[in-house]
């Protein structure tokens, strides 16, 4: 271990942020933010425009100095040990950072050479990454001619050249088509499986839901919620089974049976033939089905829905806007 690297109780916290604030003039871009990310996990940072996501990423990747507070990445202070931090991170900023006058391949070779790779080694690494990001066909074309999605992929490839321990992705899939998004998600999953730690900002809730082990929601520079996707969903309310029946009478009978089994069904506001049954988990779908059977009711439709992160997000932003 080198100087300045501490091995304390948070051995596995690769990103540690404590009381971090950043002001630009009178704007508080970040206000007393604290969080930590465990080794090999993905933190999803959610927030609207101007929430402070990019500011946090920039501080953690040593591009910006915090106004107050502390942040450590891979065990090194982002202010005092910037060089050590930069040795271990990869950054894919919000806007693609490639040299447009160079080909995709030359961009990657440039980065590898700057990191210390020899010529042949750099070329091999470049080809390997081009292959992974399906840019081999366009490898020798100037980056200026790339589409937005290709440029984004090249940018991500560039941040992986040095095999970073910690990866910062600032809205990595903005502007990508659904197929490219999926592809990028898989790359991120793969990296995490190989031991990388990822902090990812996004405005897409499904993206955080899909990729992140834990989620932090920022609004106006402050953390308004954090937890796993499950925990956040728990806050937004219960899971529901909605069952559609054929007659009003069947609705009444089924309601009765369900009450007896300890559930609390309520007719849907819009359709009187639909019963909404809040449940604890998906195993209670069976209870609902058995209840209709017992009531001798014919099922016309059955659906089970988890609350989406959107529900959570809307609720949180509503309450923070009121505050």
């Amino acid at each position: 271990m080198k100087d300045g690297r501490t091995k304390d109780k948070h051995v596995d916290a690769v990103i540690e942020v404590a009381g971090l604030s950043k002001t630009f003039g009178s704007v508080a871009a970040l206000d007393d933010v604290s969080l930590s990310v465990q080794k090999g996990s993905v933190l999803g940072l959610l927030g609207h425009n101007g929430a402070g996501k990019t500011t946090l990423v920039n501080i953690l990747s040593t591009l910006l100095r915090p106004s107050r507070g502390r942040a450590r990445v891979a065990g090194f202070d982002v202010v005092g040990d910037g060089v050590e931090v930069r040795r271990r991170i990869g950054l894919t900023g919000q806007y693609a950072a490639v040299d447009e006058t160079l080909s995709g391949r030359d961009n990657l070779i440039l980065i590898a050479r700057l990191l210390g790779a020899g010529r042949a080694e750099a070329a091999a690494r470049a080809d390997e990454l081009l292959e992974i990001f399906q840019l081999s066909d366009a490898a020798r074309r100037r980056a200026k001619t790339y589409s937005g999605g290709m440029r984004r992929r090249l940018d991500l490839a560039a941040s992986l050249v040095g095999r970073p321990d910690v990866l910062f992705l600032d809205e990595p899939t903005t502007g990508l088509d659904p197929v490219a998004r999926r592809g990028l998600w898989q790359v991120v999953e793969r990296l995490v499986k190989d031991g990388a730690t990822v902090l990812l900002t996004t405005q897409y809730l499904d993206e955080a839901d899909y990729l992140a082990d834990s989620i932090t929601v920022l609004a106006k520079g402050r953390i308004v919620a954090s937890g796993t996707a499950e925990e956040l969903k728990g806050r937004a309310g219960s899971r529901n089974v909605s069952v559609t029946l054929r007659t009003d009478e069947a609705v009444l009978r089924t309601t009765e049976v369900l009450r007896r089994s300890g559930l609390d069904p309520a007719p849907d506001d819009e359709d009187g033939l639909v019963l909404i049954v809040p449940v604890h988990d998906s195993t209670e779908i069976a209870t609902v089905v058995r209840a209709t059977d017992e009531a001798g009711a014919d099922i016309a439709g059955l659906a089970y829905a988890e609350p989406t992160l959107d529900d959570v997000y809307m609720a949180l932003n509503h309450s923070s806007a009121v505050r």
């Binding site: 591009l63 930069r86 950054l91 900023g93 950072a97 490639v98 980065i111 700057l114 560039a158």
Partner: peptide
């Protein structure tokens, strides 16, 4: 402004 400098600044150079 086009970001390539930000990339260099996030690297150990």
């Amino acid at each position: 402004n086009n970001g390539i400098i930000a990339r260099f600044r996030s690297m150990p150079i």
